[in-house]
Design a protein around this nucleic acid. Sequence first.
DNA 1: TACGTGATGAGACTTGGTCCCATCAGTGCT
DNA 2: AGCACTGATGGGACCAAGTCTCATCACGTA
Lengths: 193, 193
Amino acid sequence: MARWEPNARERLERAALDLFVERGYESTTAAEIAERAGLAKSTFFRHFADKREVLFGSQDRLNGVFAEAITGAPGTAAPIEALGAALEAVATFFGRERHAWAHRRRAVVESSADLRERELLKLAALTAAMAGALRGRGVPDPAASLAAELGCLAFRNAYARWAEPANEREFADLARQELADLAAATATLTTGA
Amino acid sequence: MARWEPNARERLERAALDLFVERGYESTTAAEIAERAGLAKSTFFRHFADKREVLFGSQDRLNGVFAEAITGAPGTAAPIEALGAALEAVATFFGRERHAWAHRRRAVVESSADLRERELLKLAALTAAMAGALRGRGVPDPAASLAAELGCLAFRNAYARWAEPANEREFADLARQELADLAAATATLTTGA
DNA sequence: TACGTGATGAGACTTGGTCCCATCAGTGCT
DNA sequence: AGCACTGATGGGACCAAGTCTCATCACGTA
């Protein structure tokens, strides 16, 4: 609804990332974030359930996109193909204009055990969403969970590579490759070394 | 080295689980746990990095066992076979005498978002340990990570089924079955539905 | 007996997070 | 204009997690 200075939530997210980069996550106080955003500490916690969440707003939005893309894939598509379609669909989230932001954010997340832990929770939610969508397509359960795990791994790897500062390639490109590599690797799992 | 009343750590773990079952995780204070164990709050945090950790002491000990079993598997064993050996090795942790405890603990973990989040961290550490051990066997990296993910999934599923109150089957048995089911499911991932 | 060591107790302190209540901006209605 | 209503905010009290420091106590040893 946006009154007063609008976009309180976005201002908080920006202030938080800036402060985390400057001073580190642990040495930054929720009150300081709010202050830099021109808000009060109580307002911070009205917008975010806890201090960690301020870095994960976008991650939440991914789940729905993933699930819908999986559900909307052609009925004849194999699980892996549906995952591929979902990775394509989600690539719109990772345009070049967000690359610098993504890299800064990623560096912060890597720097704190609390934040890495929260990221695992988000990825688990993503995996669950993908598994649910696959089951909705009629994929039975050990396969659906396994495929979701594989899709999540492909996403994680592709995102990590995309967010690297020196990276020039597009997300869809990287994701396709990661998924293909993983699919190929499944064949080697039952082969003696 | 255990002076005064010995086994402070174990007393804290027991007191914590009992209180969590009685009053719930969130409504139990670290000071209350310490008090029931006959200790002070500061002593609690000397033994455990935070309130969540008091439930995860045993989980930490698993990683080493898993990694060693993978490393020690016959050199000709395929990744899946090495994982199977590791699941067998770890079965000694899950004797019938720990079944009631495991079930109580599991119910508490499921009841709290904080605890589920911490469990994901522990499982991620387990996955990383398994992947590292597989790489040490010469398994190249997309396959090693994927196999570790698969092994972790098998472990999670097997543990969940083993810890159910009505369960009578042995962990090794359940784990073997989960792993076999997952291995079979890999074949279906590239097949249209 | 005196000393050193390691585990503990006690309590101050910071911060994350909750809650309540007053306040203020904008909307719509009269 | 004047009014009530709604929703976002500010402020501050409050609780619990977690850190830190210092004194203390039990035990082994010289």
